[in-house]
Structure formats: structure tokens, C-alpha cells
Write a protein that binds this DNA or RNA. Structure first.
Length: 199
DNA sequence: TACTAGATTATCT
DNA sequence: GATAATCTAGTAT
């Protein structure tokens, strides 16, 4: 019953991503990210944890100091990918929100592997199911996201987000791993999820 | 189980 | 030249 998530007709459309960033961050929980590779391999995971990065009054956001080459995708129109490299080791996958010129995005922090688990295990070099997509660096690695995916539209048949309508109880907390604006309640996760990066 | 250090590089100042 | 929206392995308890 939940396995119809490959149906592109029920994916989130561009308008969804143009909404307020906090709204998008919350609504993305429980939705299913589907990526189809050239060799027809499909990877899919339920989004269990997100963080919102705003354009205003948010010093932790990459967009806080204005547009640069690195954060340019955040200033484009919503519904595309923003991937950045951090700590010399990790990629982090974000979904750009709101209208062109705003500068906001949602960081996808963790998810529940649903499909293409073999492929994820290969990408991650790990067999621990609960941790395959747990943490932004791991999530991006499991899906094979790199900076080459910047500006990639997330409303395409080979990469989209299925609009699963299952209701989830959401917990709100402060964001992780930041120093500036660390007190803002902009992290959201599915209450009780086994797949989030921290409990 | 809990904490610490080290990895390693694109980007911006 | 310093910094960073992290992860992991290793050591200590």
C-alpha cells in the first residue's frame, strides 16, 4: 500500500517548494525521496529529519552574508538541490525553498531507507540499516549526491519527492552542529523515528 | 556508553 | 590562512 511511491504523478510539484521554508521543512517529513540512476537502479528513502535555514534573522544560514558562488543555488527558485562540501569530507544535501532571490533551503538530515538498499550500502560502505541515511553527510553519501548536483531540479521523473500522506507526529528542536543562531527551533523530525541522527 | 581527536578541502576573507 | 550546517575510530570509564 505504501509502495506506490514510484508514481511520479503523486510527487511534490514546484509550487510546494515555493512555500515558507519552515512549512516546507515540516511538510517534507514522511515524504519519500526517489532517485533513479542511468542504469535503472532506484534509491528511495523516507525523509525523517530536516532543518530549515532561513533568509532573514538566521546567522547560521549560508545565505546570511549574501549571495556567493557557493550558496548561489539557495537564491534560485525553490525545488532544486543545493549541495555543499564541508569539513573536507562530507557532502550535505539541501532542498531550496521559496521564490528566486530569497536565499533559503531545507537541509535533509536523515531518512529511512526504503529501496535500493544494496546500492546505499555500497555507497556508504556500511550494512547498518538504521544508520545508512542517518546524518546529513551519510544521507548525501547514500544517495550519491555531490556538488555536481547543484541546481538539479527535484521535480523530474528520475528524481522527485513522493507525496506520501501518512500523518506523523513531529518533534521540534534546535539545530545541530552550528554555533550561530543555535537557539532557533528550526530542526524537525518524526517523533520516535529510529533513523534520525540523534535522539 | 561517553568523550575526544583527526580527517581533509572548497570557499570566502 | 581560517573556517566549516560532520562522521568515525579510538580510548577511557
Amino acid at each position: 500500500m505504501i509502495n506506490n511511491f514510484l508514481d511520479f504523478d503523486h510527487s511534490l510539484k514546484k509550487e510546494f517548494f515555493l512555500q515558507d521554508t519552515e512549512t516546507v521543512a515540516k511538510q517534507l517529513l514522511g515524504k519519500i525521496l526517489v532517485k533513479r540512476f542511468n542504469n535503472n537502479t532506484i534509491i528511495a528513502a523516507r525523509i525523517d529529519e530536516t532543518e530549515a535555514y532561513l533568509s532573514l534573522n538566521d546567522d547560521a544560514s549560508h545565505s546570511a552574508c549574501g549571495k556567493t558562488r557557493r550558496n548561489a543555488p539557495m537564491f534560485a527558485s525553490g525545488g532544486i538541490a543545493y549541495v555543499y562540501f564541508i569539513y573536507g569530507v562530507h557532502f550535505c544535501f539541501n532542498i531550496v525553498t521559496e521564490a528566486e532571490g530569497i536565499g533559503s533551503a531545507v537541509l535533509v538530515r536523515s531518512g529511512k531507507p526504503l529501496m535500493g538498499i544494496d546500492e546505499m550500502q555500497k555507497n556508504r560502505n556500511s550494512n547498518h540499516l538504521n544508520k545508512l541515511c542517518s546524518g546529513p553527510g551519510n544521507f548525501a553519501k547514500a544517495f550519491g549526491f555531490t556538488t555536481a548536483d547543484n541546481f538539479l531540479s527535484l521535480c523530474e521523473p528520475n528524481i522527485f519527492i513522493y507525496n506520501d500522506v501518512t500523518e506523523h507526529i513531529i518533534t521540534v528542536s534546535t539545530r545541530i552542529g552550528i554555533k550561530k543562531s543555535a537557539d532557533l527551533p528550526l530542526r524537525f523530525y518524526i517523533t520516535g523515528s529510529e533513523y534520525t541522527s540523534k535522539k
